[in-house]
């Protein structure tokens, strides 16, 4: 049992289970395990049977969804502290999305039955799960709203700012090592147009594009342009 204590500590750090009594947590640790993924590994494959949820400890993953692999779009990024698989949890059928590690990613896997037991036996965890779902819905609806009303340049700038905020939890918040195809997909534009915006911003030295990453040199200026772009 003692080898499971680190898992309890880890789960208690997540808002979903921070108010969950240890007695409930310790009863549901069978099958919980640390799973590591290399860059580009599938953490979850769309249409595969739902068997549990993954808490991200370290690294970044992307959630993609579509009719098939060649025709899919990126929904969002997940970072440490977040969990993936909850949208499939309630219906206990197949995963409706894929999750792919963008760098070496460490997760804590919790089997479906344990997760179900933890949420249904603890009202605070259930309420917290509702908050997480509300937040995820808000993020997507906000992006949809952006596709309706914002210019492409505005959407690219806002996305770069939000990626800086996601990175803010790491050591180097202003260096974004994301795939340009993914950034274009998230911003709802083409890679060519993304290049055009990036080139424009790099001429003013607001950012620098290298082979591996985008470095934001002047976040305040970027925010200013995003707010005043029409």
């Amino acid at each position: 049992m003692s080898e499971l204590f680190p898992y309890i500590t880890h789960l208690k750090q997540n808002p979903l289970f921070d108010k969950c009594p240890e007695v409930i947590l310790s009863k549901n640790l069978k099958g919980v395990e640390k799973v590591s993924f290399q860059k580009n590994d599938y953490i979850i494959k769309q249409s595969s049977p739902y068997n549990g949820v993954y808490f991200i400890n370290k690294g970044v993953a992307k959630i993609i969804k579509g009719e098939n692999e060649n025709h899919s779009s990126i929904i969002r990024y997940v970072v440490p502290g977040e969990l993936i698989g909850v949208s499939s949890y309630i219906f206990e059928n197949n995963y409706t999305f894929s999750a792919i590690a963008l760098e070496k990613t460490e997760t804590l896997f919790m089997p479906a039955d344990n997760f179900q037991q933890m949420v249904s036996s603890n009202s605070e965890s259930a309420l917290e799960l509702m908050k997480i779902l509300c937040y995820n819905i808000y993020l997507i609806e906000n992006r949809t709203n952006g596709l309706f009303y914002k210019t492409t340049k505005q959407r690219v700038i806002e996305l770069l700012i939000s990626l800086c905020q996601i990175n803010g939890r790491g050591q180097n918040p202003h260096t974004l090592s994301y795939n340009l195809d993914d950034i274009a997909s998230l911003a709802g534009t083409t890679k060519n147009y993304l290049y055009k915006v990036i080139n424009e911003l790099s001429k003013s030295d607001i950012l620098t594009l290298t082979k591996q990453s985008i470095r934001i040199n002047n976040l305040q200026r970027l925010k200013f342009i995003g707010e005043h772009e029409n």
């Binding site: 949208s87 999305f97 509300c134 949809t144």
Partner: peptide
């Protein structure tokens, strides 16, 4: 509580479907 989570999960799926449609 479970029915509320189910309702939110449906909302999430609808939101994802909508943004995929847009894209």
């Amino acid at each position: 509580s479970m029915l509320t989570i189910q309702m939110l999960t449906n909302d999430l799926k609808a939101a994802e479907k909508r943004i995929l449609n847009m894209a």
